Simulated scan of single mutants.
Amino acid sequence: MTTKGKKPDKREYTLKFIPHQGETVRSYSFSMRTLKIWAAALAAGAVLLLGGFGYMSYSVGGAGSIAAPRETPDEKGRQAELAQLAEEARNLQTEMEKLTEREQTLRRLLDENAEDESAKHTGQGGPSVPAEVSQVRRALDAVSRGLPARRESLAQLEAQLQRQRTEATARAAEADKLARTDVPSNVPSGWPTSGDISSPFGWRWNGTDFHPGIDIANDTGTPIVATADGVVTAAGWNAGGYGNMVDIDHGNGILTRYGHASEVIVHEGQHVKRGEMIAYMGSTGFSTGPHVHYEIHLHGEIVNPASYL
């Protein structure tokens, strides 16, 4: 049985362009075969164009996203450990700074290895590099090992300072005992502390200010002692400019006052003896440096302490 082939499609289509104003009409004739070829070519071009656009989008957007590094669980753990170590480092640094500040204060009080803070150099620099956990741990271990030695050093300095204060008090008491054998115990006699007179009693600064006592200057922490037996009538902060202050009533209308102390170690109502330590020298209240302001009141009148020294 013979199968007959399809007859070729011989249809034709005419496309006419009819211009305005009576110009010539143009006609274009196309066979069905030609139209099919043009349609296939247009379809192939559209496929190629869409494919190229899709490839470019993938290259610019998709490929870039895939190439971006992602943080692995190990990296997250490392960052968390570094953050914890950084917090430990800050805490250790804070403690070390406090210990260093305390040590410097004690050494100044003991007059050992005194340093001029203004002469210190403060230059810093160096490249910034990523921190490694092992490096931070080694640094923290080094600081931790140094803390016990620093604490021990501070304990020794504090003990030395206390011995110095005790010895100074004992020497002052012994000197007072020898110098005041003929003076009644309730009459002020001798110096309330050791040091230099930095401002005398009376008018000062070209007559612009009257000073109601004498100022004896020395280092912060120098012991201050009572100059006669009596009862403490004031011990603590005074808002009138004396800072930390002690008043002692010796009876018979006699009162002594000791101002600008760094620390008061007696309390109101306490009975004290001549030469007994009552405070430590400081620079509280209206003061330009460590000293004790010493006043003597006699029946309510302020008198010059110089005659009682």
Rank of each mutant, 00 (worst) to 15 (best):
M1R: 11
T3I: 15
T3V: 15
T3P: 07
R11Q: 13
T14L: 02
L15C: 11
K16T: 15
F17S: 07
P19M: 00
H20P: 15
G22H: 03
E23W: 10
R26Q: 15
S27K: 08
S29A: 15
S29Q: 12
F30L: 08
L35N: 05
K36Y: 12
W38E: 15
A41M: 11
A43T: 11
A43Y: 08
L48Y: 11
L50T: 13
L50A: 14
G51V: 11
G52P: 06
F53W: 14
G62K: 05
S65A: 15
S65I: 12
I66R: 10
P69A: 10
R70M: 11
E71Y: 00
E71T: 14
D74T: 13
E81I: 11
A83Q: 10
Q84P: 06
N91E: 14
N91T: 15
E95S: 08
E95A: 05
K98S: 12
L99N: 08
T100N: 13
T100I: 09
T100M: 09
E101A: 15
Q104K: 09
Q104A: 12
T105Q: 11
L106Q: 03
L106V: 10
L109P: 06
N113Q: 14
N113D: 15
A119Q: 13
H121G: 15
T122I: 13
G125W: 05
P127G: 07
S128F: 12
V129P: 04
E132Y: 04
E132L: 08
Q135F: 06
R137L: 11
A139K: 10
L140V: 06
L140S: 04
L140E: 00
A142S: 14
S144G: 09
S144P: 04
P148T: 06
A149Y: 09
R150I: 08
L154R: 05
A155H: 02
A155K: 09
Q156C: 05
L157F: 03
E158W: 00
E158A: 08
R163M: 07
Q164A: 14
Q164K: 13
R165V: 12
R165F: 05
E167C: 05
S189Q: 09
S194R: 10
S194K: 13
D196Q: 14
D196M: 12
D196R: 14
S199K: 07
S199F: 03
D209T: 14
F210I: 06
P212Q: 09
D215P: 04
G221A: 02
I224G: 01
A226L: 02
A228V: 00
D229V: 01
V231K: 01
V232Q: 03
V232R: 06
T233P: 01
W237K: 04
W237M: 02
G240K: 00
G241F: 08
N244V: 02
N244P: 00
D247Q: 04
I248Q: 02
H250G: 05
G253H: 01
L255P: 03
T256C: 07
Y258Q: 07
G259D: 00
G259T: 05
V264F: 04
V272W: 03
K273G: 09
G275I: 01
Y280I: 05
T284K: 03
F286N: 14
P290F: 03
P290S: 00
E295S: 00
E295Y: 00
I296R: 02
I296L: 07
E301N: 13
V303I: 13
V303R: 02
V303S: 06
N304D: 15
S307Y: 08
Y308N: 07
Y308K: 03
L309T: 04
